[in-house]
Amino acid sequence: MRQLFYNQALGEALAEEMRRDKTVTLWGIDIGPYGGANGVTKGLWEEFGEARVIDTPVAELGYVGMGVGAAATGIRPVIELQFSDWITLPMEMIVNQAAKMRYMFGGILEMPLVIRAPIGGYLNAGAQHSNSFESWFAFVPGIKVVVPSTPYDAKGLLKTAIRDNNTVIFFEHKKLYGIKGEVPEEEYTIPFGEAAIRREGKDVTIVTYAYQTLRTLSVAEKLAKAGIDAEVIDLRTVKPMDETRILESVKKTHHLVVAQEIWKTCSVSSEVAALVAEQALDYLDGPIVRVTAKEAPVPFSPSLEEEVLPKEQDIYDAVLKTLGR
């Protein structure tokens, strides 16, 4: 099958949706002739023109807020934030406006807003360019949160996000833009709330998402050599979360590890652990073990970043711990 880079797959999803639906409109900084800081919008300004691929000033509160107003009035805005780190600036527009308007107004308007934003560390980019804030948004009713780990998922999930009438925060891990994967020529979409079982196994369930999926799969191969058969579940969307697949897997393997890149407290891993504790505690034959970042801002120096962000070895050790080995 045809191979595409993750960023190309995203660009293709945007182009197809823009051709299909004239109301799909993009804006953000440097997304026009420049093609976006990560090359996702390359060629779109040339094809769709500056009325639908709009370079904005550096004004996050303004251009995300504009997305709320446009989404409420018949446009499907897909906004690119150059780094997710500054999603803090338009937080008001996302959390107090976009997420709540339909509900507060009694369901009389739609909010088909997509915000795309790169997350993640492992790049020595320092504390203000290495964040992953997915748990903040999963916390808020009215917002869906997408965290694709493959080019195939990136494309299929972005198309679904654009067609969704809710606010969707679409997080793209920076380490993934340059990875290649199979993407069919034919049209497809991927529904939200369906996790992918990346590797079937019987001994332990490892729930993960985004870039950690790749690392977990590599750990799973090492575990296999040690005679441990791990099942790897990639959440794909953290909100809605595929509770069924997680619970079914844990009922089969009786052991749960959750692996995420960022901090532990009140995070996605907290939610997965609580879900299993609430609904499948009796099936567990070992402690739930979480692999997360250590609780410090992501530091710049390689020796420090390596200490703060989770290592593959941490995932390996977590599996041994839940299995009592």
Partner: peptide, 25 residues
């Protein structure tokens, strides 16, 4: 800044330098 900051986050309050900054504005 002990390697925690890097190029974008040098600060030195003794000289009144309240930090380079990774966030525009």
């Amino acid at each position: 800044n002990k390697g925690k900051g890097g190029s974008m986050h040098i600060a030195y309050p003794k000289l009144g330098i309240l930090g380079a900054n990774g966030i525009v504005s």
